[in-house]
Amino acid sequence: MIAYLLNLATLATVFGILAASLNLLIGYAGIFSIAHAVFFGIGAYTGAQLAILFIPDVLLACLAGGVLAGALSLCLALPALRVRGEYFVAASLGLQMMAVTLFSEAHSLTGGHGGLVGIPMPTLFGIDISEPATFLVFCLLVLGGVLLAIRMLMRGSFGRALMAIRDSESAAEAFGKDVPRLKTLAVGLGCTLAGVAGALFAFYMAFVNVESFTLEQSILVMAMVIIGGTATLAGPLVGVLLLLLLPAALSFLPFIPPTQIGAVQQLIYGGAMTLLMIFRPAGLAGQSTGRR
């Protein structure tokens, strides 16, 4: 039981980092990416390869995963951000589809469908931290750091610039904001953090394959952010907890056959997204849009 809880808590922490990083894009910058699982995946593969080939140091893996994911995200951001928002959605969807093919075909880098197995136990400066509780603490520290960084940046001028662009791009431009550059920066930062989450995920699973980085995963993370509430610090975390606990809760319901749990879960969060947009667009943890 304790093991199960530790496990769930670690997963929630990793997804917390991932959702917080997507919130930077969707919630603060108003950039709608459906390819977040791709950068999560790049981080995971990078972290896993680093651990397998060189050294299983989590900090190094996080750094490498983050840097590579952030750098590659510019390939998406530079072309797609020059044009309207609809294009970014289309481009990110396209990227997501292409990346899944790439992940399953580039055997030498990703291990193909079989994935990368035998990721060694995580260490930190040579000290073994593979103990579930220790690893959880490390993940929590990373999450804390990420949240703190996001909070500081979003309360400062960078956050104001992104939110201004989100609320009115043309007005932001008219007041001297270099919109493409700021958006690129936001995408780079968000995807770097997704890469960090990916590296942690690789150690947590001790094995990675393409199944974790598909369109479904991107949608799940998006649902976490939206249902929890965009542009708040707590919102994505609320979303993560709700959606990670949902399958467990559903498995207690006797009338749902176990094979259908995945579909029922999707049904619930798809419906929740639609209903929220009609009745409470800011999400569960967001401020309601009451007008005077």
Partner: peptide
């Protein structure tokens, strides 16, 4: 907003797919 409409429609797509 584009975002709200998009998410709502996306949500319905997921609903239909899972049904």
């Amino acid at each position: 907003s584009f975002f709200t409409v998009f998410v709502a429609a996306f949500g319905m797509t997921i609903v239909v797919q899972s049904l």
